[in-house]
């Protein structure tokens, strides 16, 4: 469509089940926090505000500027969204954007959406907001400078995480994927930093109240400064290490036993060789149990189909009054 796919949107098939599941778990827990926090802070107003803001991030990614040789830079938006909306709201907004990109445009997969949200939505928001929050009471120049650095780091963090996930899934070689991803995104991050700084300085000029003392950008707890700082520091320390000495990282992963689970690429039931059940007979039994479970689900679904078939055979309601009552109860039921 109008946005150019970036190498950060991982499609399905490129991450192993184990890595996808771990990323989904982290994402779901974080989003649970985000939902309860924004519920308290914004109440019923959050839905129109965050919905339109999500559309804003999506649309802002279409504003591009020519860089060189036919390529163009554009915004990713994670850092900007979290700075102007607060970290939790920023995370929800980015989640909605990534979900629509995956669902509607197939830009990024469904099974790996947890990883994509983690890389482009959660980590970028934590870094962007955390660093900015640390200097929120400083002068305008300092604020903008830090926001620029935070935007650049947020892109680098997303790239680093993506590279690590691909490597742990056995899809890419660490010695190539880390320098390649970090190299490309060092440039993309520059564009992100410039646009973020310019957008923030524009907002500071025209609507300073949105970034003032009482705004969402100053309300986040001090914990964000620590969280953002720690993640940023991890990226800064890990990136040069990973690009100059990937073998070291390889060793660490080997020692931790990452590869046995990750590189098989087929998850916990790899070839029925459930870790503790190595003999052929035990594997067959496990497979049999799995088969029984699936057959049970199928039977249950067929049963529910039969049940609602019988329910549908009820005599049609002829009386106008009961039909209205029926409609009313339906509307109440649909309330979601």
């Amino acid at each position: 469509m109008h946005f150019s796919p970036t190498p950060l949107h991982i499609p399905d098939g490129f991450l192993s089940i184990a890595i996808s599941a771990v990323c989904w778990a982290i994402t779901i827990v974080t989003l649970g926090f985000a939902i309860s926090k924004t519920n308290k802070a914004l109440g019923e107003k959050q839905i129109p505000l965050m919905g339109v803001m999500a559309a804003f991030v999506f649309a802002a990614q279409m504003i591009n500027f020519p860089v060189a040789g036919g390529t163009s830079g554009h915004l990713l938006g994670g850092a900007l969204a979290s700075i102007v909306l607060g970290p939790w709201a920023g995370m929800l907004v980015m989640t909605a954007v990534i979900a629509v990109q995956a669902l509607l445009f197939q830009d990024g997969g469904l099974l790996v959406m947890g990883a994509n949200i983690l890389n482009m939505g959660l980590v970028t928001a934590a870094i962007g907001y955390g660093l900015y929050r640390g200097v929120v009471s400083q002068s305008k120049t300092v604020k903008l400078g830090v926001a620029g650095v935070a935007a650049w780091l947020s892109v680098m963090a997303g790239a680093l995480l993506t590279a690590l996930q691909l490597w742990l899934s056995g899809t890419s070689q660490l010695t190539i994927v880390i320098p390649a991803m970090l190299g490309v995104h060092a440039l993309i991050g520059l564009g992100e930093a410039f646009i973020t700084v310019a957008a923030l300085s524009f907002i500071l000029q025209t609507r300073p109240d949105l970034l003032g003392e009482d705004s969402e950008s100053a309300k986040g707890g001090r914990g964000w400064v620590v969280a953002g700082g720690v993640i940023a520091l991890a990226v800064v320390l890990l990136s040069p290490l990973a690009s100059t000495d990937p073998d070291g990282l390889n060793h660490v992963a080997m020692d931790l036993g990452f590869f046995q689970t990750a590189q098989s690429g087929v998850g916990p039931l790899a070839g029925y060789a459930v870790p503790f059940l190595n003999s052929a007979i035990a594997s067959k039994i496990a497979a049999g149990i799995l088969g029984v479970i699936v057959a049970g689900i199928v039977a249950l679904l067929v049963g529910r189909g039969l049940k609602s078939q019988i329910a549908n055979r009820k005599p049609p309601v002829s009386n106008l009054q009961s039909s209205i009552a029926n409609r009313k109860s339906k509307i109440v039921n649909q309330k979601s």
Partner: peptide, 17 residues
């Protein structure tokens, strides 16, 4: 050019907000 794009993003943000 990046600055112009950034100003446009800021403008779009205010209009959306």
């Amino acid at each position: 050019r990046a600055k112009v794009a950034g100003n446009m993003a800021g403008q779009l943000f205010l209009r959306s907000y």
